[in-house]
Amino acid sequence: MEVGFCGPGLMGAPMIRHLLRAGHTVHVWNRTPDKAHALVKDGARVVPTPGALAGCAELIFLCVSDANAVEQVVFDAGHGIAPATQRAAGAARVRRIVDHSSIAPSATRGFAQRAAAAGIGWVDAPVSGGVAGATAGTLAVMAGGAVADVEAVRPVIGAYAARVTHMGEVGAGQTAKLCNQSIVTATVAAIAEAVSLAQRSGIDAARLTEALAGGWADSVLLQTFVPRMTRRGDAPIGALRTFQKDVDTIAATAYETGTPMPVAGTVQQVLRLAAAMGLADADFSAFVDVLQPGQRG
């Protein structure tokens, strides 16, 4: 299949490589052209605008930073996918957009309605598993959309995902991702507190992975973040500003639905403090630097 992909970043680039290995022709666009051109050696074909994808791919994937980026890529009057589809009429090939970005469910529903006016089906399909999961091709995908649309894209997504769960209509995938992020951010914050407590108590916090392995506190997050919080020099796997964006979306959705979320509210304030400390672009593990600045070796 010929597919388009907008957003070859830390997550998108390995996903594109899996699509190429699966035999798909992948046309790529990115706001920063160098990131797109870096994939040419893997077989990707770079296009000048998102709208250019509308004429060469029937399925387009998005993996961009936020709702504003989604809106610009899809609906920009000059270079967006949907206007290009409408201008080209019968010549346009794009039939479906799969949005792997993490944005508000309400924004997703609005985008889907606007895309439908251009004859484009919408699947919101945020992912979990991080850069490691994207690289290994084992991502978990939470999908929202019409059954026919989700089933049509499932085999293609399978190139980089171990599991695709259809959660319901458009927006349901994003709601599931907010649930995921509420657990992830609260857990990483709790791990940072545990590491800080261990260090201030005079024990080797790095040994928590061994001491807690197999117990109720053990998890992929524990095994990932205790080492990252007790040393420096690891390649970043994401920035705290991404967590802050997601937690702000959780808070807004909780308000819309009348859902009490006191833990998420506390994590939101920790992330705002991190931003005020100049840590917005720091790795996810910098939660611990909010609690004890400058203490990592």
Results as ranks from 00 to 15, higher is better:
Trp122His: 07
Trp122Ile: 02
Trp122Val: 05
Val123Phe: 09
Asp124Phe: 07
Asp124Met: 05
Ala125Pro: 14
Ala125Lys: 12
Pro126Gln: 01
Pro126Leu: 03
Val127Ala: 07
Gly129Phe: 07
Gly129Trp: 08
Val131Arg: 15
Ala132Val: 10
Ala132His: 08
Ala132Thr: 11
Gly133Lys: 00
Ala134Ser: 11
Ala134Asn: 08
Ala136Trp: 01
Thr138Phe: 02
Thr138Ile: 03
Leu139Asp: 14
Leu139Thr: 12
Ala140Cys: 14
Val141Gln: 02
Met142Gly: 07
Met142Ala: 13
Gly144Pro: 11
Gly145Ser: 02
Gly145Leu: 00
Val147Lys: 13
Ala148Lys: 11
Ala148Trp: 04
Ala148Pro: 04
Ala148Gly: 05
Ala148Asn: 06
Asp149Ala: 14
Val150Lys: 01
Val150Asn: 00
Glu151Leu: 10
Ala152Thr: 10
Ala152Gly: 06
Ala152Ile: 03
Pro155Asn: 02
Val156Glu: 12
Gly158Ile: 11
Tyr160Met: 13
Ala162Ile: 09
Ala162Trp: 03
Arg163Lys: 14
Val164Ser: 08
Val164His: 12
Thr165Ala: 15
His166Arg: 15
His166Gln: 13
Met167Cys: 15
Gly168Phe: 00
Gly168Ala: 01
Glu169Ala: 15
Val170Tyr: 14
Gly171Glu: 01
Gly171Asp: 04
Ala172Met: 07
Ala172Ser: 15
Gly173His: 06
Gln174Pro: 12
Thr175Pro: 01
Thr175Ser: 14
Thr175Arg: 08
Ala176Phe: 01
Ala176Thr: 10
Leu178Ser: 04
Cys179Pro: 08
Asn180Ala: 11
Asn180Asp: 12
Gln181Ala: 13
Ser182Glu: 12
Val184Ala: 12
Val184Phe: 09
Val184Asn: 05
Thr185Ile: 01
Thr187Leu: 13
Ala190His: 03
